[in-house]
Measured scan of single mutants.
Amino acid sequence: EDPKKEILLAMLMVDKEKKGYVMASDLRSKLTSLGEKLTHKEVDDLFREADIEPNGKVKYDEFIHKITL
């Protein structure tokens, strides 16, 4: 499956209130437990690539855009 789609799906599952962003810690939890599970190192690399703080907010569109360039 398309990794971009899988990450967006994980974000939507976490963002039940439809705020347009999720906490990095919640996204990490989903990405390491769903679908093609990522390792913590892979998530760290994704966050670093997208300039996301480990305890920060992750906005869908910015995150998807940064990791798919």
Rank of each mutant, 00 (worst) to 15 (best):
5 K>A: 12
64 I>D: 07
33 S>V: 04
44 D>A: 04
45 D>A: 12
45 D>H: 07
45 D>K: 07
60 Y>G: 04
66 K>I: 00
23 M>S: 15
52 I>Q: 05
68 T>D: 15
62 E>K: 04
29 S>L: 10
60 Y>L: 13
11 M>T: 12
14 V>L: 15
27 L>Y: 02
32 T>V: 12
35 G>K: 10
60 Y>S: 03
19 K>I: 05
47 F>T: 04
32 T>F: 07
36 E>V: 14
28 R>G: 01
1 E>W: 05
11 M>C: 13
4 K>R: 13
46 L>S: 03
10 A>I: 00
32 T>N: 08
23 M>R: 13
6 E>R: 09
64 I>S: 05
6 E>L: 06
5 K>G: 06
13 M>S: 15
48 R>Q: 14
44 D>F: 00
38 L>P: 04
51 D>E: 10
39 T>R: 01
55 N>G: 07
53 E>A: 12
58 V>H: 01
55 N>V: 02
49 E>M: 10
12 L>D: 14
16 K>G: 03
9 L>V: 06
40 H>W: 04
37 K>G: 14
29 S>M: 10
55 N>E: 10
46 L>F: 04
40 H>K: 09
5 K>L: 13
17 E>V: 06
11 M>G: 12
19 K>Y: 07
28 R>T: 01
20 G>S: 09
53 E>R: 09
64 I>E: 07
59 K>T: 09
55 N>A: 07
27 L>S: 01
39 T>N: 05
8 L>T: 05
69 L>F: 11
2 D>L: 08
26 D>V: 02
41 K>S: 13
23 M>H: 14
34 L>I: 04
66 K>V: 01
34 L>K: 05
61 D>S: 11
51 D>A: 11
41 K>Q: 11
39 T>Q: 04
24 A>D: 00
14 V>K: 15
67 I>F: 15
22 V>D: 04
52 I>M: 04
68 T>Q: 15
29 S>V: 07
23 M>D: 15
16 K>N: 08
69 L>W: 13
64 I>C: 13
66 K>A: 04
64 I>K: 08
29 S>K: 13
27 L>F: 05
46 L>E: 02
50 A>I: 09
10 A>D: 12
52 I>T: 06
45 D>P: 00
25 S>F: 00
60 Y>H: 02
5 K>D: 04
55 N>M: 06
56 G>L: 01
14 V>E: 15
51 D>M: 09
23 M>L: 12
55 N>P: 01
